[in-house]
């Protein structure tokens, strides 16, 4: 089972979701790799209490 998914990763075309440094997404795009960049910001605007609740409540 588990080998199937890693085998998929290394045999199928790479398709990336990038979150964080946008430069990584830009460079992948330049190489012709499918990439979706997430315009990310810290959950709950960085409020640790709310972020903790969110992680427990799952999104």
């Amino acid at each position: 089972m588990e080998n199937d998914k890693t085998a998929d990763l290394i045999s199928k075309p790479l398709n990336v979701i990038n979150i964080g440094l946008e430069g990584f997404a830009t460079e992948l795009k330049q190489q012709g790799v499918s990439v979706t960049h997430v315009d990310w910001s810290p959950p709950a605007g960085g409020d640790p209490k709310i972020a903790d609740l969110l992680s427990k409540l799952g999104t």
Binding site: L9, V16, I17, G20, L21, S34, V38, P42, T59
Partner: peptide, 17 residues
Amino acid sequence: RAAVKINPEANLALISV
């Protein structure tokens, strides 16, 4: 959630937050 929705074929997440 939205990124995966618009790119359901994605197989790798690159995280640098």
